[in-house]
């Protein structure tokens, strides 16, 4: 990945045109609803403005290349963990928070460095082994400071924070090392967001039956099924992203994004509902926190990564 590779990449160009066109259509639609039909579009406009900032950042990062993607997504993971730590109260424990931050940085570093045995970008062997070292460090913290009261909660929160927000999400970052980085990365980011939007639109239009009433009352079966249907079709529409994928892989990718996306969304809702908050933060205006935006990606990224890796390898 590099600016010149992006200029030569048909996949990057198609996604660029596709996303820009969709952004324009969405903008015109909101303007039509607001000025012609005189509808209240406050929420949609706030969300759209968020995308107007996020999309150039994402596309700019992907255009700049591997280092920018690794750096950018590592910062996203750090920001996501910060929100999680503030929401759960873990941030009051500075030592533990610092250990997790270092673990997240280690995820970025192992993604960046060259594998000393294979000579390829990214040391996946060490990346896969990182949870061992980070959990060992997390568990050692209470021992070092000779404290037991309340430490199981702190240890558990730190491990979930590192594993879920850092390590699982880090698989999306790792895709920047792939020979098909543009296709994998852009498809993953695009498909997960389309899945989210589809669930919202289908739910709004046809939603009747609550999906998981105790977790997220606004989500419906109709929305979830509509999103899965869209996600199942998407791999065929965007087959150019991974032309080496056969029918089985396309089916599985559709399922992983369709079902995994909803589960990722709901799993963050479980955390938020248990804590008793609505959003993880207000970092992105119109979208809530960084975690609210990447909740589906956290769940889908490692599944997508291992599916691709299993059938075709990452390199």
């Amino acid at each position: 990945m590099s600016p010149s590779a992006a200029m030569d990449s048909g996949v990057f160009k198609i996604y660029f045109v596709l996303i820009t066109t969709m952004l324009l259509i969405a903008g015109v639609s909101i303007a039509f609803l607001r000025w012609v039909l005189k509808k209240d579009v406050g929420h949609a406009w706030a969300s759209y403005r968020g995308w107007l900032v996020m999309i150039p950042l994402i596309m700019g990062g992907v255009f700049l290349g591997r280092i920018a993607v690794i750096l950018g997504l590592t910062l996203v993971a750090l920001a996501g963990f910060k929100e999680y730590a503030r929401a759960t109260g873990l941030y009051r424990d500075w030592t533990m928070t610092c250990v997790v931050y270092l673990g997240l940085i280690a995820c970025g570093v192992t993604t960046f460095v060259v594998d000393p045995f294979l000579g390829v970008p990214g040391w996946y062997g060490l990346y896969a082994a990182l949870p061992v070292y980070v959990i060992a460090a997390i568990v050692a913290v209470p021992i070092v400071r000779n404290r037991a009261a309340g430490q199981l909660q702190v240890i558990a929160l730190a491990i979930v924070g590192f594993m879920y927000i850092g390590w699982m999400f880090g698989h999306a970052t790792y895709l920047a090392n792939s020979s098909w980085a543009y296709g994998y990365l852009l498809y993953l980011l695009f498909a997960v967001q389309i899945n989210d939007v589809s669930a919202y639109v289908f739910g709004k239009c046809f939603g009747r039956h609550p999906l998981r009433s105790s977790i997220s009352p606004n989500k419906t079966w109709e929305g979830a099924i509509g999103a899965v249907a869209v996600s199942m079709v998407l791999p065929w529409v965007l087959h150019f992203s991974f032309p080496h994928f056969g029918t089985l892989e396309l089916l599985l990718i559709g399922l992983v994004v369709g079902v995994g996306g909803q589960l990722g969304d709901l799993s963050l809702s479980v955390i938020k509902r248990d804590i008793g908050i609505k959003d993880m933060g207000q970092t992105i205006r119109g979208h809530g926190g960084v975690l609210d935006r990447i909740d589906s990606l956290i769940y889908v990224a490692p599944l997508f990564f291992h599916l691709s890796n299993y059938y075709h390898g990452i390199y």
Partner: peptide, 9 residues
């Protein structure tokens, strides 16, 4: 949980 008081800001 001791959530940050300014979580919604």
């Amino acid at each position: 949980y001791e959530t940050a008081e300014d979580i919604d800001q």
